[in-house]
């Protein structure tokens, strides 16, 4: 038993439009559309401002979910089957998992912090020196620029 037996269609994709298309673009695309049933649907859904707003909200959510499913490997799960031509299914994404990335970043931050702790004494001096030097350099540059302009 499949619950989402008819997942919503992506009218923008079917009319080769983007969701932020202007009314004019939509009208011309609808007029060009060879399928009369699709033309009528598009006229009703995209031609009326309130209908289009409601549709856009759902469109955003469903395309977000399509993206999430692609990243989480859920594109062929039970609640996403049904229509063979599911407009919102993306090919599986090989992006690194967010959780692994978070763990990587946390471990990097931890190692940096530990290193800082270990070399606290000498490195603090070096850091102070470099900061002073860079401030002096910046002043010199600014002066030179001011002279050349003036």
């Amino acid at each position: 038993m499949s619950i989402d037996s008819n997942i919503m269609r992506d009218l923008y994709q079917r009319l080769t439009l983007t969701p932020d298309a202007s009314d004019q673009e939509i009208n011309s695309a609808v007029a060009r559309c060879p399928n009369s049933a699709l033309r009528q649907d598009a006229e009703t859904v995209l031609g009326v401002a309130e209908h289009r707003d409601a549709y856009n909200k759902l469109h955003k959510t469903v395309s977000d979910i399509g993206q999430l499913r692609a990243r989480l490997g859920l594109t062929h799960a039970a609640h996403w089957q049904g229509d063979v031509a599911n407009d919102f299914s993306l090919p599986p994404d090989h992006a690194i998992s967010r959780h692994d990335e978070l763990i990587d970043r946390v471990s990097l931050a931890v190692s940096l912090y530990n290193r800082w702790r270990r070399f606290k004494g000498p490195w603090l001096l070096v850091a102070l020196f470099t900061i002073g030097a860079s401030i002096g350099l910046a002043f010199g540059l600014a002066l030179g620029l001011g002279l050349s302009i003036g």
């Binding site: 997942i7 009703t44 859904v45 549709y55």
Partner: peptide, 14 residues
């Protein structure tokens, strides 16, 4: 019972 989602991309929904 859980009904299947309606489809606002169709004329019939509106």
């Amino acid at each position: 019972p859980l009904q299947s989602a309606e489809d606002p991309s169709r004329d019939a929904y509106w």
